[in-house]
Amino acid sequence: MSETRAVVEEFFHRAGAGDFARMPELFAEEVDWDVYGAEEVPWIGRRTTRAEVADFFDILPRHLKAEEFGIHQVVVDGEDAVALGYMRQVVVTTGDLFVSPFAFRFTVQNGLITRYVTYEDSLNLARAFGVV
């Protein structure tokens, strides 16, 4: 198994177990991170350090409750991987559903994630969060 696949699988194992406190350990000290969407959603935006990644994993579970989160396929090409899946989550503050297919892009170098970019229905998320 490739190092990239192993790290990505561990990322999803920890996420699925709700082990958000240990998620930052998977990331390099410097990271190219982008979660696109409405700036009013607390966890959206760019991050560049492991400390900022830790902040994300502290904020996210306070705002979303996963009802369904499934990975359909992980494609690995050397240091790069893309995970394709589907999520259904409840926004805690509104009670509204956020439902979206997704693609998460990873780059893994020296056993740590150095790039993380999400592609999801950010308009649907903003609506569920009540900001549009």
Rank of each mutant, 00 (worst) to 15 (best):
A83G: 04
V76G: 03
Q109F: 15
V75C: 01
G85H: 05
T107W: 09
G85A: 01
Y86Q: 13
N110I: 10
V90A: 04
V82S: 09
F104N: 02
M87G: 14
V82N: 11
V74G: 07
V74L: 13
F106R: 03
R105D: 03
Q109S: 15
D96G: 05
L97W: 09
G85L: 13
V76L: 04
D80I: 08
V91L: 02
V82Q: 14
G78R: 10
L84Y: 10
Q109G: 15
A81T: 11
T107I: 02
L84S: 07
V74F: 10
V74A: 02
Q89S: 07
Q89H: 11
R88A: 00
T94S: 05
G85W: 03
S100C: 13
Q109A: 15
R88N: 03
Q89V: 00
T107C: 14
G85M: 00
V76A: 07
P101S: 03
L97R: 05
G78Q: 05
Y86H: 14
P101N: 06
A103K: 01
V91R: 07
V99L: 10
V108H: 04
Q89A: 01
M87D: 06
Q89F: 08
D96A: 13
F102E: 11
F102R: 04
A83K: 03
T93G: 15
S100Q: 02
V108T: 10
T94I: 00
V74D: 08
E79K: 06
L84W: 08
A81H: 09
Q109R: 15
D77C: 08
F106D: 08
F104D: 08
A83D: 08
R105K: 11
V92N: 10
L97N: 07
F98Q: 02
V108E: 06
D80Y: 14
M87Q: 15
G78C: 12
R105H: 12
R88D: 11
V99A: 03
V74W: 08
L97I: 06
L84C: 06
T94M: 01
V82P: 02
R88S: 10
D77P: 02
G78S: 07
A83S: 11
L84G: 00
N110Y: 04
V91M: 06
V76I: 06
V91K: 01
A103R: 07
V90L: 04
F98M: 00
A103N: 05
V82G: 05
V74M: 04
R88H: 00
V74K: 02
V74R: 03
V99S: 04
T93V: 13
F102K: 10
T107N: 14
V99M: 07
A103F: 00
T93S: 15
L97Q: 00
T94W: 11
S100R: 03
D80K: 15
D80L: 15
V75N: 06
L84K: 06
R105G: 08
F98N: 08
N110F: 04
T93K: 14
V99E: 08
L84M: 14
G78T: 05
Q89L: 09
F106C: 00
P101L: 02
G85R: 05
S100D: 05
V108Q: 12
R105L: 13
D77M: 03
V75S: 11
F102G: 09
M87W: 12
Y86V: 06
F106Y: 01
V92C: 07
G78H: 07
T107D: 13
Y86K: 04
A83H: 02
A81N: 12
L97C: 07
V108L: 03
D96T: 00
G78N: 10
Q89M: 08
D77N: 13
V82C: 01
V99Y: 00
